[in-house]
Amino acid sequence: MSVPAFGLGTFRLQGQTVVDSVRTGLELGYRAIDTAQIYGNEAQVGQALADSGVARGEVYLTTKIWIDNLARERLIPSLRESLAKLRSDYVDLTLIHWPSPNDAVAVDEFMAALLQAKREGLTRAIGVSNFNIDLMQRAIAAVGSDEIATNQVELHPYLQNRKLAQFAREAGIGLTSYMTLAYGKVLNDPALVDIAGKHRATPAQVALAWAMQSGYAVIPSSTKRENLAGNLLAMSLRLDDEDLRRIAALDRGERLTDPAGLAPAWD
């Protein structure tokens, strides 16, 4: 994947909390950070990066364009505003956060603007988030599959998104799993607890390792140093075929993020 397999998410983290989380993550060895315009924390992420002493070129930084900024005349100016907050001349990846509700802004319009941002050097890669197959097809028609680094979607043991995953795989587009721990539900799942015990790991590490072994990037977040450190260990955990079969059986189509008026018709 062109997108790092493991990164640090910042969804719902605000103020000093996000500064501390990002700073601690960088101290522990995280080198990919995910934020978004709508999170309202780009300035704090930028502060943490600036204060960390880690060179900008060593960190893979992702932000996302909010729906209010999808129009051709708004997208690039809004990205420049994000860059100012992030204290950087560029981001490594810029995503369309959600598709335009009711197609108010056409997919080809905002994808063309996003590609222009890449050509101007404001972002090194582009992609999408919360796109279904139809929207992915339209994005591919607009800019080509080679230009789409990832589709960031809700994906966890209870929502394995197999139809979308197969389409993305055939199109050569990576998936990034958000909410991989299903708002913490996986931590008490009997199957995951059992698998974790077998490997002397934690259920969180098992869920993250499952996603990465499935070919997805992950961006878990935490405000606790021990959890940030523990999550990193998922990168060295290898699940066996029986573990993967047990996790595959947990899929029940349980979607936790489905905002009315914003979410597309899911596959």
Rank of each mutant, 00 (worst) to 15 (best):
N151F: 07
A104M: 03
R124T: 01
R119G: 07
V128N: 00
Q137H: 10
A201E: 09
W210F: 13
V193D: 14
L155N: 13
A196K: 00
V107A: 04
T180Q: 10
N188P: 00
N188V: 14
V206H: 05
N161Y: 15
L115A: 14
G172E: 01
Q160K: 13
I173S: 08
R200A: 12
M111K: 14
G127D: 03
R162K: 07
M136S: 05
N188K: 12
Y183M: 02
S145G: 15
A149G: 03
L164M: 09
F167N: 10
A117E: 03
A141R: 06
D103L: 12
Q116M: 15
L114M: 08
V218Y: 05
A191Q: 06
S100Q: 15
E120S: 02
A125Q: 11
Q205I: 12
F167S: 15
Y178D: 08
V128Q: 04
V153M: 00
A217F: 12
Y216C: 07
A182H: 08
I173P: 12
L115D: 10
E170S: 12
F167M: 15
G144F: 05
A168L: 08
S177H: 03
I126C: 13
N161C: 12
N102W: 02
A142I: 04
S129Y: 10
R162L: 15
A125L: 13
Q213A: 09
M111Y: 15
M111A: 15
V107C: 11
T123S: 14
M179N: 11
K198F: 01
A106E: 05
Q160H: 06
A149P: 13
M136D: 10
S177R: 00
A191W: 15
A139C: 04
I133T: 05
D103Y: 05
A204D: 08
S145F: 09
E109T: 11
V153N: 04
A104C: 04
E147K: 04
L181K: 11
A191H: 14
Q152H: 06
F131P: 09
I133D: 14
A112C: 07
G184K: 10
R124M: 02
A112S: 12
V186Y: 06
E147Y: 11
Q152D: 03
Q205S: 15
G215C: 07
V193C: 09
L192I: 03
R169T: 05
S145Y: 06
T123H: 03
A209C: 11
F110N: 11
G174W: 07
M111I: 05
A209I: 12
A117Q: 05
P203F: 07
I195E: 02
A209G: 01
A182F: 10
A142Y: 11
Q166T: 08
I148P: 14
M111H: 07
A149Y: 01
I173T: 13
P190N: 03
K163S: 13
F167P: 06
A191C: 02
S214Y: 11
